[in-house]
Amino acid sequence: MITVNNVRKDFGSFTALKDVSCNVGNGSIYGLVGYNGSGKTTLLKIISGVYEPDEGGVLINGGMVFDNETVKRRIFFVPDDLFFLPQASLQRMARFYTGYYPQFSMETFHKLVEMFELSPRKRINGFSKGMQRQAALILALSARPDCLLLDESFDGLDPVKRSLVRQVLTELIVERDTSVIISSHNLRELEDLCDHIGLMNQKHIVMECGIGDVSANRNKFRIAFQDEFPKNLLDGIPHRNEERSGKILTFVATGDPDEITAKLSTFHPALLEIIPLSLEEVFLSEMEAKSYDFTDLFK
């Protein structure tokens, strides 16, 4: 169980995280989503004990993380920017981690190496970027941690290996009840993999819920009228991302979809549809993505 309590992190005069809280249960995969620079990596580094929070704290199974070696032996952090010892092979890195992670299993390691079809004796620096990421994941999974932190770890993996990693992760969770936090920009992937999602924006977690609840109260409505749009059509309906194209109006509304449908039906629209939101749409909706004018951009 990972508990992040009111964490704040400053870098000099710049505040990277402010009052961030979240919980990740055992056997749960938590997806961390946010703009570039929203603080995802900083949060992961705090959870892994690399950074010390300026305020608040992180508990893993009840133990404070920062500089707590007993807790940290059960956490494995795979950062976006990977590091391997100079001239090291996978085998050497495995030996390196064996000493620091008592739960590291060479048996698991060998099985994974075989599964991912990587040479354990070749220099990792000679690997492609995707292979290096696979190597990092093999080492992380071989450590059999209670808490696995993956920062953009799926980037650079081919679809087959992505699928393989997903399966192995699922197996890890099933067998060891591991808590996993994954930060990624690939929202489609997170949607398939995670059971919880946290959306980070403006140094906060602005939304945190189960993957099934992501779009529960958010729906995209499409409505069209034969004639003019009624003036008070959206009055009293919390909504955003309103877009009008000809006679069709699209918007995302928050609230009970049946109530909203009933209210809209009173205007006798020619068309009224409810479309479930994808995670990406929820993300864009929550982040209130700006509309850009691309006209003449490359003229």
Partner: peptide, 8 residues
């Protein structure tokens, strides 16, 4: 990141 996240 590596050394400060190790279990020591």
């Amino acid at each position: 990141n590596l050394y400060f996240s190790l279990g020591i």
